[in-house]
């Protein structure tokens, strides 16, 4: 079940921009770990466990690789651990590498969530807001792709029976046939569209997505949390010396806001899940 999808795609897009903006630019390990937890928990509820495990394994490999290789590229920093070929290997570079690895993996995980929420329908809706014509192109393309693949398979199968050309040659021949078919059909399609009056008036769009009260609520809550976590952010310094800032009340507020912001999908999903169970047991 994926109830987060019920929100308006624009609101959801803004939410993802908020989270990714802070994740990409803040370089703060505490925020990054919190973001990772939020994303993993959400994927745990929504997606299947195997693909999540695969992503986590990939993330661990990336994290290790980036941490270990970063000192090779960056020789800044005060605390020298040892030398390789007269190049300094510093503690700061290791720490920076680890945070960089966290940043990359966190963004990968959030894009996993993004892909879970944004299907093609929502994408076309968003594109339609910016450019209706491109949205039409997008939806036509998405329909053409399976069509072309299907007609390629049919032609290729027949070609296989009637000739004993090598595979590459046969593939190219069949692809060429698909291209001819597609291009001629495109002219026929566009003439047909014109004769049915496409372009004579502004195109209207039907969409299932309306802006409801709960969308407004979601937008306001996430915006407030975003602003709070950006305004009361804490900066970590890595070069030339590691400086971890102390936390007072306002900075704690900033941290808390971002932690809530990243846990919203998980909390919402959990809430809906509980509600669903509760309603079932009453029937």
């Amino acid at each position: 079940m994926n109830t987060l999808k019920n929100f308006n795609p624009i609101v959801l897009l803004i939410y993802f921009i908020y989270v990714l903006f802070i994740s990409i630019f803040s370089f703060n390990p505490i925020l990054l770990i919190s973001g990772m937890l939020g994303a993993v928990l959400y994927c745990l509820v929504v997606s299947d466990k195997r693909s999540l495990l695969k992503s986590i394994a990939a993330c661990i490999i990336i994290l290790l690789a980036v941490t270990i290789t970063n000192p090779l590229f960056s020789h800044n920093g005060k605390t020298v651990l040892f030398f390789i070929n007269d190049n300094r290997v510093t503690l700061e570079a290791f720490v920076y590498g680890a945070v960089l690895g966290l940043c990359i993996t966190e963004v990968i995980l959030w894009f996993k969530c993004f892909n879970l929420v944004f299907d093609t329908e929502r994408f076309i809706f968003l594109f339609g807001k910016i450019s209706p014509k491109l949205a039409l192109v997008l939806s036509m393309t998405l329909r053409f792709i399976p069509n072309f693949i299907k007609s390629f398979r049919e032609i290729n199968r027949t070609q296989k029976l009637i000739s004993n050309k090598r595979r590459l040659k046969r593939y190219l021949n069949s692809f060429s046939a698909v291209i001819t078919q597609a291009m001629e059909n495109s002219i026929i399609t566009s003439d047909s569209m014109n004769s049915r009056g496409y372009g004579s008036k502004k195109r209207t769009f039907y969409s299932r997505f309306r802006f409801t009260l709960s969308d407004a609520g979601f937008l306001i809550i996430t915006s407030v949390l975003f602003v709070l976590s950006v305004v009361y952010k804490t900066d970590f310094t890595y070069y030339p010396e590691l400086i971890f800032p102390s936390i007072n009340f306002l900075e704690a507020l900033g941290y808390l806001s971002f932690i809530i912001l990243t846990f919203i999908p998980f909390i919402y999903e959990l809430k809906e899940g509980i509600r669903w169970k509760y309603l079932i047991s009453k029937i």
Binding site: T141, I149, S186, M193
Partner: peptide, 15 residues
């Protein structure tokens, strides 16, 4: 025509 052709070319490259 350009619009449909764009969709076809894009679809061909992805397909």
């Amino acid at each position: 025509r350009r619009l449909v052709m764009l969709a076809v070319m894009t679809a061909l490259s992805v397909a």
